[in-house]
Simulated assay, not measured.
Amino acid sequence: MSDIYRAAERLMGMQDADWRRHANPLSVWTRFSCLPLLVLAIWARIWVGWWALALFVLACLWTWINPRLFPPPADFGSWASRATLGERVFLARDRHNIAAHHIRAAHVLTGLSALGVVPLVYGLIALEPFALLAGLVATILPKVWFCDRMVWIHAELTGTTPGTPLATPLLPPERTPI
């Protein structure tokens, strides 16, 4: 499962400047619209036929542009900003001393989110709204919890308290190779 994180990061092609922009709370909170927009675009096939493909492409474009759209925040101390900073640390976990319980929790939450895709896909194929909504909730809620875990990781490794203002995107020092 650990490769799924790196694959997603490579797919998004995030550079340092993109991560700084994505730490803007507007970027983080609007990011949660990506999956519902993709789902809506696919569901729209029953209303607009093949034009749903254009909606799907627009939703994919929004997914890619969202972390790059907003300016870096003036303060990196918000929960949303720290979730982004913590995710950066987590993605580089081979270079940081992240507690094993955080890594296990992240894997479990990612697995739970992935399980939510099953009813979501079924709902899209069978045009079953209840399964679709249950799948959306089951996919998004673990992701929110994952973000909270990333805040916790950031706080532990930087020795800071969430909510305390941060003028720069503070990242912990990388461990020295043995």
Rank of each mutant, 00 (worst) to 15 (best):
L61N: 00
V57D: 01
V57L: 09
V144Q: 10
W62L: 07
P119V: 15
R20I: 03
H154P: 07
T168K: 14
I98R: 04
M14Q: 02
L69V: 03
V57Q: 04
V89A: 06
P119I: 13
I65Q: 14
S2K: 05
R149I: 06
L69Q: 14
P165K: 10
D3H: 09
W29G: 03
T161R: 10
L141H: 01
A92H: 10
W47N: 04
N24Y: 11
C147V: 05
T30G: 01
R82G: 07
V137N: 04
M1T: 06
T84Q: 13
L124V: 00
L38N: 04
V57G: 01
P172Y: 02
W43R: 15
R45P: 00
L132E: 14
G116D: 09
T84I: 15
A99E: 08
S2C: 01
N97I: 01
R21D: 01
R20E: 15
R88Y: 09
L115C: 14
M1N: 08
R88L: 11
S27W: 12
L170P: 11
A59V: 01
I65T: 12
M1K: 10
R104M: 07
L38C: 15
R31L: 05
R95T: 00
E128G: 11
D148G: 04
T176W: 01
I125L: 15
W51E: 05
L141P: 03
H102T: 12
R95E: 14
R68N: 09
P73I: 02
W62Y: 15
V108E: 12
D18N: 05
I4Y: 11
P36I: 01
V89I: 15
V57T: 06
A131P: 02
R82N: 03
R21N: 11
L58F: 08
V137P: 02
L61R: 13
A80P: 00
L35C: 06
N24H: 14
R6I: 05
T139G: 03
